[in-house]
Simulated scan of single mutants.
Amino acid sequence: MDKSIHTFLTEPTIESVSTIFKALSDPTRIRILYLLAEEECSVTHISEVLGLSQSAVSHQLSFLRNIRLVKFRRSANTLYYSCDDNHVISLLRQAVEHASCEMGGEANA
């Protein structure tokens, strides 16, 4: 085959895609991102809604912040987190929709 008709991915693109899928491969991060796609939240709120320790939530938010999937704003002494990459949220929602179809509509149950 002639290589000139193919488009090849650059190494930075491959690394970026790999990092995104790494982020989406963790169940806790999926839960956090899905919640943040719905509303801006503090660590305390995320912890209460998802039934996780604040330490676990903070650890995952740090990872997600470092790869720029979430951002935060400060209000007094509280940090409020929200999604910072709508493309990744779109991927997440598509994966949830796909899982729902595969499970006969039970993914959100």
Rank of each mutant, 00 (worst) to 15 (best):
T10C: 01
T19G: 04
Q54S: 14
L91S: 09
R29P: 02
G51C: 08
Y80N: 08
E38L: 11
C83V: 15
A37L: 03
D84L: 01
E48S: 12
L9N: 05
K71E: 14
F21R: 05
A109N: 15
S75K: 06
L69H: 02
H98Q: 10
L24A: 12
E97F: 02
E11I: 15
S55I: 12
T28I: 10
E38D: 09
A107C: 05
A107N: 08
S58T: 15
L69M: 14
S18C: 13
V88Q: 00
S18P: 00
L33Q: 10
E97L: 13
I46K: 00
Q54W: 02
M1A: 15
L92Y: 05
Q54C: 14
D26L: 05
I32F: 07
L9K: 13
S58A: 13
E39F: 08
N86K: 03
R68L: 14
S58F: 08
E48I: 05
L50N: 03
F72P: 00
I32S: 01
C83I: 15
H45N: 13
E11P: 00
R73K: 15
G105N: 02
L35I: 15
T7P: 00
S75A: 06
D26Y: 05
S25G: 03
E48N: 07
L9Y: 12
S55L: 09
G105Y: 03
I89N: 03
I5Q: 06
L36W: 04
R93I: 05
N77K: 14
S4Y: 05
L91E: 05
R68G: 07
S18D: 10
V17S: 06
P27S: 14
S47G: 07
R74V: 14
C83R: 01
L79Y: 12
D2H: 06
T19E: 13
R74I: 12
T13G: 04
H45F: 06
Y34I: 08
R29G: 04
T28P: 00
H59K: 14
Q94A: 12
G104F: 05
S47H: 04
V88L: 00
I5H: 09
F72C: 12
C41I: 04
S82F: 05
H6L: 11
L91Q: 03
E48V: 14
T44Y: 09
A37T: 10
L61K: 02
L61W: 02
T13D: 07
